[in-house]
Design a binder for these strands. Structure first.
Length: 256
DNA sequence: ATGGTCGGCAACCGA
């Protein structure tokens, strides 16, 4: 079993990346965030040609999540509970006995903004979502763009960037609270080193070449799945495109 | 803490 996550920043404008990548890497599951496409315009057909079926939940201009799968997905849920207005940040589905949870967590804009309060609340409501459906002994893979750097190893300049909406105490605390529920950060299980990133801001010239990045994307696993993990890696090669996304693929492999 | 540059989509918003 191989799973991956990728923030596309518009799926339709990154099909030249996504389609060859799934063809070459053959993941069982690919979770995508920021599809930026309404459901009636979703490119189902070109994806189906690669042998993948897709579930998706999008809206105009912003957000949007999708899961590509080679096997049948069941028990599909779109969005957090009690928020029919904003469903395009979460998809959850079951693949046999394993739950796949794909989230695009709010970025937060500025720490004194309403969007930052919304971000913190979003994590709390995700915990309610989990408690309603699951227990920590269930097999769950929670992945996506979390917009949180967990510690100083996860940003290129920890001193200068401390206080950013993606790298401050409040967001680290709410993510840690969810991890305490029962999730293991698979990338960190295999790599303790600083400087391994999944996002390089393309407003910053040559950010990738200088490795001025952030680790904002995660594959989290409950214990029963984490013990089956054989590898978790960031595919930095996938950034070598003429029109890259500013995120890259994060991949995990399991012996089931 | 910012700026920068993208994508969507037609004037800015969000990242």
């Amino acid at each position: 079993m191989k799973v991956a996550t990728f923030n596309a920043n518009s799926l339709r404008s990154r099909l030249h990346i996504v389609l060859p990548w799934v063809g070459a890497n053959q993941p069982d599951i690919l979770c995508i965030q920021e599809t930026k496409v309404q459901d009636h315009e979703f490119p189902i057909d070109v994806i189906a040609e690669t042998g993948y079926q897709t579930i998706f939940c999008g809206e105009k201009k912003y957000n949007g999540v999708a899961i590509l799968s080679r096997c049948e997905l069941n028990d599909i849920v779109f969005g957090l509970d009690d928020e029919p207005k904003d469903p395009a940040r979460l998809i959850c589905a079951r693949l046999e006995s394993t739950w796949i949870l794909n989230t695009y967590i709010p970025q937060g804009r500025a720490r004194d903004s309403e969007m930052f309060a919304y971000k913190l609340r979003w994590f709390e409501r995700l915990k309610i979502f989990l408690n309603r459906r699951f227990t920590p002994t269930d097999r769950i893979l929670w992945m996506g763009d979390f917009n949180v750097a967990r510690d100083e190893r996860d940003v290129y300049d920890p001193k200068r960037l401390w206080g950013h909406v993606c790298y401050c105490q409040e967001v680290q605390d709410v993510l840690q609270d969810l991890m305490d529920w029962g999730f293991i950060d698979l990338f960190r299980q295999f790599c303790e080193e600083p400087g391994h990133y999944t996002f390089w801001d393309y407003r910053m010239p040559r950010a990738l070449q200088q490795n001025l990045g952030w680790r904002l994307d995660y594959i989290m696993a409950t214990q029963s799945v984490a013990i089956k993990a054989m590898a978790c890696q960031i595919d930095t090669k996938a950034r070598a495109f003429e029109k890259p996304s500013d995120h890259t693929f994060l991949v995990a492999e399991f012996d089931f």
